[in-house]
Amino acid sequence: MSGAAEPLRFKVVIPARYGSSRLPGKPLAPIAGRPMIEHVHRRALESGAEEVWIATDDERIGEAARCFGARVCMTSAEHRSGTDRIGEVAAMRGWGEEEIVVNLQGDEPLMPPTLLRQAAAGLSDHPQAVVATLAARIHTTAELFDPHVVKVVSDAAGFACYFSRAPIPWDRDAFAVTTEELPERSAHFRHIGLYAYRAGYLARYAELEPCPLEAMESLEQLRVLWHGDSIYVAEAAELPGPGVDTAADLERIAALVAAPVAEQGT
């Protein structure tokens, strides 16, 4: 008789920086009386991660995070991406090469905790991948043709072929007739920016040169594919809530968070 399966073990790191061209101080923006980063931290704790860290280069964020009991890792201000920042945390903490680390962006207060576990499980179940991520089906042409929505195409085994801001795959016959609606056979997916990495790969990623595709599309995950490594992509078990990029996003999310509280008081 075989033994019980090993429990899924993973860590979560939340990269958070103060500077933002559209919403300065974004991680500290208030939502229902608490800074946004606290809501994100709660989602990470609810995922069942064995450790949750907030990685920042700004003491204002660090101080706020410590006030609500978070573990904080102060990192360099020179990092070009959140992935590089997470790599510094992994190195500082001395995590083993096979440890799974989930990158939860600091502007995702409505990310379902189940998706963090799903991304970690995707990496755990696919040892040939160095990164795992999630995607969701696209249902409208407005979303498909929106350059702010990142699309992903995967192979039969679920490994990413390419990520793009362009509408991929291009349905030649259907779109030659109309781009007003998606064809019935449509299999278009948008990428959900949630990543699971092996800690050992984070160190290697930091040493890889940025690639031309990454610069053209402004998508750092293309660096992984360019250098010949594999990204496993699973269809998300549920849809995430919206992230925060602008002040309007913040107002919308604050209303969503406050709604259940208001309903409880009626």
Rank of each mutant, 00 (worst) to 15 (best):
P109W: 09
V153R: 15
E235D: 03
D125Y: 06
W226E: 15
I138T: 06
A91Q: 13
R9S: 15
A157N: 10
I61G: 06
G19I: 13
P169L: 07
V101H: 07
T75D: 07
G241A: 15
D171Q: 12
P260V: 13
A64F: 00
S76C: 15
P112N: 02
F10E: 10
T266W: 10
S47E: 11
R80E: 07
L213P: 01
T75H: 14
P7M: 02
E209K: 12
E98G: 12
E263T: 14
M74R: 15
T56K: 10
T179D: 08
H191R: 07
Y18M: 13
D229R: 07
D245M: 05
A55F: 04
E209L: 10
E238P: 04
S81Q: 12
S2R: 09
L222A: 01
F163G: 00
P240G: 09
R9C: 14
W53Q: 03
A215L: 01
P147I: 03
L213T: 12
L144T: 02
E217R: 00
T56V: 06
I100F: 12
T140C: 04
R117S: 13
I37A: 08
H148E: 02
L256T: 13
G33T: 07
A156H: 06
H126K: 07
A90L: 04
E59G: 01
G96L: 07
A4R: 14
E181Q: 11
F145L: 04
Q105M: 14
G200L: 15
A176M: 02
A120K: 11
R80H: 11
S154T: 13
L213H: 04
R17M: 05
L110N: 13
A236D: 11
I37M: 05
I61W: 02
L8H: 11
